[in-house]
């Protein structure tokens, strides 16, 4: 059956990973290619590279990074941060990114969602939404890294993004982000009831239990996290084992011990399929 995805998010500045796990076996901790490979081997199902480069002049560096990563990483990866228009989509997708995530630009120019979906397919368009809880109930949408109000109601905006052609939503709780107190499950549930596209939970993961809650209660399709894995508090494998023990379907870790490895000997002709699913 379809498995729930665990997605580490890596912050990238000027083409270097500035926030990611300190893998002991890596020579160059900031090298996106080495980091991507290490996460692949650790069992990540997908990766998100978030460009936190401040200046637009340095955008070309991100494209070069994507080119290098795509040459040797063969799992899906998303690139986000500072995407302004259709040309950014074209540039990064042609370099090898599978999905592009847009946040502020989608709010400012909602037509960008549909234009990108028409041109590159909905599967390539991730709309990232930063939400903050209202005292009066519901959630408001913030942009520009949480500094700017939009007047949008989160569930309405999630629905609009889907209608305009988003293939996936990356839903971040600004209240929980960095707290390690767990995802905002009510927000996840509310959005999941309103849309029929996959939803990635983000903001607040601090333990495997939080991941479990996002899937079991929040009905998320994927969970994104940073510090829980970057600071090596829990490994992806530990998290997946925890989830599997509690009945959440996950892709087993340990399949990724290296592409160059010699193949195992042929199994016997008579070996019967055990009907597993």
């Amino acid at each position: 059956m379809l498995t729930k995805r665990l997605i580490p998010c890596l912050d990238v500045k000027d083409g270097r990973v500035v926030k990611g796990q300190q893998f002991v076996n890596l020579k160059d901790q900031g090298d996106p290619v080495e980091m991507a490979r290490a996460y692949n081997q650790a069992g990540a199902d997908e990766l998100v590279f978030l460009d936190i480069t401040a200046t637009r002049e340095k955008r070309e560096i991100m494209r070069e990074m994507v080119l290098k990563v795509a040459e040797c990483l063969f799992i899906p990866f998303t690139v986000g941060g500072g995407i302004a228009g259709i040309e950014d989509f074209r540039s990064l997708i042609s370099a090898g990114a599978d999905k592009i995530s847009i946040n502020s630009a989608a709010v400012r120019t909602p037509g960008l969602i549909s234009r990108a979906a028409e041109r590159f397919g909905s599967q390539a368009v991730v709309v990232a939404i930063d939400g903050r809880r209202r005292n009066s109930g519901g959630w408001k949408v913030l942009i520009s890294g949480g500094t700017e109000e939009t007047g949008l109601e989160l569930v309405d905006w999630a629905q609009e993004a889907q209608e305009r052609g988003a293939g996936e939503l990356l839903l971040t709780s600004m209240d929980r982000d960095g707290s390690r107190d767990g995802y905002d499950l009510e927000m996840l549930k509310a959005v999941n009831q309103a849309v029929s596209i996959p939803v990635i939970a983000s903001g607040g993961a601090g333990s495997p239990e939080h991941l479990y809650q996002a899937f079991a209660e929040g009905k998320a399709d994927a969970a994104l996290a940073a510090s829980i894995w970057h600071q090596d508090i829990y490994s992806i494998k530990e998290c997946k084992n925890y989830l599997a023990e509690r009945g959440i379907p996950v892709r087993p870790v340990g399949e990724e011990s290296g592409e160059e490895k010699e193949e195992k000997e042929e199994e016997t002709l008579e070996e019967k399929n055990d009907g597993r699913e």
Binding site: M1, L2, T3, K4, R5, D45, S122, Q123, G167, E168, S196, I197, P198, D221, A222, R251, R276, E277
Partner: peptide, 10 residues
């Protein structure tokens, strides 16, 4: 399930 079918399946 949601549509599209997106992710790792066996």
């Amino acid at each position: 399930g949601k549509v599209p079918h997106m992710g790792w399946n066996n």
